[in-house]
Amino acid sequence: ETWRYAFEEALDEVQGKFAQKFKAEVEANSDNEVQLFPFGTLGESVDIMEQAQSGILQFVDQSPGFTGALIPEAQVFFVPYLLPQDQDQLFSFFRNSKAVKELFPPLYAEQGLELLTMFPEGEVMMTTTEPVRAPADLNEVKFRVMTNPLIVESYQAFGATPTPLPWGQVYGALQTGMIQGQENPAFFIESTKMYEVTDYITRPGHNNFTTAVMANKDFYDALSDEDKQVVQNAIAVAFDYILEYQDGLTEESLAKIREAKPAMTITTLTEEERAPFRETAAAVEQKYLEIGGAQAQAILDQMKADLQAASESAQAEAAAAN
């Protein structure tokens, strides 16, 4: 059988790498063929999601930020400073999270989707035309954000003027000075050339871009046990692969940016500098609870418990290593 799998990025970006691995695993271990449809070839994010719900597509990768319009709870991934900056803790969270593995799947199922996995795509960084060390530096800065209420809220809390803008216009708008900043993971800043039209990359550590892979539920339920196993195994292999792939990806992307544009200033904020940004998180969390749907509180509590567990297990591992 031919399975179709669409995602929101280009073939050699993180979602595309995951999809390619998934395809290779499925095709090596079964007679099924997987066709890949990168960003834009079947429409935008919302379109491919609807097609997966309709069953035209069997698999789709959509980031919870976009899914928020459908499953409001998924916006939890936009609460700043919720996810840890430490890579080991982060990976441990995604491997073991009860919220991801038990609380989210029924919410996706209500929308006709089988949630297969969630994985991180990289630390979100600001690229701006002026240096940013403190919220005061964002004052009056028109900062391009995705059209999502929580990101808008976050950047308002940071002191910027959040400016929703279609992705296709961002490069030109940075070039002319219509906006002065935008945020994305390092690999995306590199691949979309955002560094060409900004001079500063700032790492406030406020978030890690998360994405989710799902299948059409009717399709998945109708699979033979054998094929279900093939899918689950391929997802597991691709998950391990993508975490390994990401280990170092951020530094590699930043190195490429430095090489292409030596004048680029890349700053990791210190814990002290992060503190005033971190203080705004509570307000955004409150907003999430307001608009995050019926399960918002349960999801947030579980996420925090999972993160606590991830932090403890990472510390235990570190202690064992010493």
Partner: peptide, 13 residues
């Protein structure tokens, strides 16, 4: 050109 630059990883400038 912007779309081409993004898809192919070419400098848009």
């Amino acid at each position: 050109m912007i779309i081409y630059g993004v898809v192919s990883g070419t400098s848009i400038s």
